[in-house]
Write a protein that binds this DNA or RNA. Sequence first.
RNA 1: GUGAACGUAGCUCAGCUGGUGGUAGCACCGGGUUGUGGCCUCGGAGGUCGUGGGUUCAAGUCCCAUCGUUCACCCCA
Length: 421
Amino acid sequence: MLKIKAINGVKDILPAEIMYWQKIEKTACDIFRRFGIHEIRLPILEKTELFTRSIGETTDIVEKEMYTFVDKKITMRPEITASLLRAYVEHSLHLQQPVQRLFSIGPVFRHERPQKGRQRQFHQIDVEIIGAHEPQVDAELMAMGQMLFNALSLDVRLEINSLGCPACRPGFRNKLIAYLQACSDSLCDDCKRRTAKNPLRALDCKKQGCKAAVEHAPSILDNLCSACEEHFSAVQQQLDLFEVSYNVNRFMVRGLDYYNRTTFEFLTADLGAQAAVAAGGRYDGLVEQLGGPKKTPGIGFALGMERLFLLMQQQKKQQDQPKGQGGADIFLAALGEQAIRFASPLVHQLRHLGLQAVMDYSNRSLKAQMKQAGRCHADFTLIIGEQEIEQGRGILRNMNTQEQTEFSFNRGAAALAEVIT
RNA sequence: GUGAACGUAGCUCAGCUGGUGGUAGCACCGGGUUGUGGCCUCGGAGGUCGUGGGUUCAAGUCCCAUCGUUCACCCCA
């Protein structure tokens, strides 16, 4: 029989690495709690229209990367923000509390060619603060992100930019297009295409020629309207108050249409071509665009869990290694059919008492069972053979000290539990 | 969608200008210890060399195709 393998671009998370994922989730939840951010769980399937309306009809994600059941007009979410806002609007959460601070964790799907730090099914931690326009909130979100990376002992850098708003961006966009057209000869083919479709993209092209060409391009930061200008400088002041270090990167842009004003990315040089570990920004028009209350501001970011995981491997520091769930409290080594019959209710009682108790029913040699006990990292092994049953007491071996004592079975499981804890 | 590299045991890999698949390491199973794990030691099991063609007396090795994986581009977390 041909083995059935997982499809291209998806990965199993194996028991050997699950501790990293649990640590990431636990750390994130703990930090979110400190910021008063609450969990929301969302469906993976949404109406296709949710994403075409929010992310943008002509973005790459919508144009070619979504997994869609065309006949049903249903899509497997390519990001979480849209779903979260859909739920916010659908349940009128703004009526319960004007500012909603929410997070959600789960898989997202994009049909891209996989590479390092990029999968077709991957996992995001998504945080959104809806209903607050104050620049302090922008900074707080970034400070929280930094706190999370610090808690995981990860070294990343923060870059920020402002994309302006509907009042000032179109003007800048026109200036930029004019500039790009003027120096079109020194741009790569991709950037020539971008000039028409998404000129801002040309600003963060990786090619040397384009980098040089846009070096003197008009800067969005010189073209912000006064409100945006004020907002952006207030964000920076607040970051300073939170003692979060950052760099302003006027070349940073966004691939999703809904962003305005503040954008930010947490970046690393340790993941090959995938520099962004977390990215986000403000989306003040989006809630309204999804049918929510008018002029509801919002800001959020998404964090790529696979990238976080890879980074934890990459930047491994011995003292920060997450611990597994720990070994067994006790292994019951039963020798012979009679002993197995005797031991099985005992192991069950120990589990009722809350212990991790392990045995197997294969009736293998004591040596083999001891070996297995070692593999389970059992603290104790209780050896039960024909002799022991006859005499009414088993041999209790402390696996760490190698000391052995006898344990009378008639004392019961509770007494045994007490002896070994 | 585009480009490149790579597919040998569960994992990591040797295998030279074509000449019998490796006492290889880790892991697994068993013995050394009549019933005691880790260390040691001896043994065992495990492979259609991704698949299909071709060249050749002879292909893991060379050629073609195909599938898969990886990395990069595009784009993005």
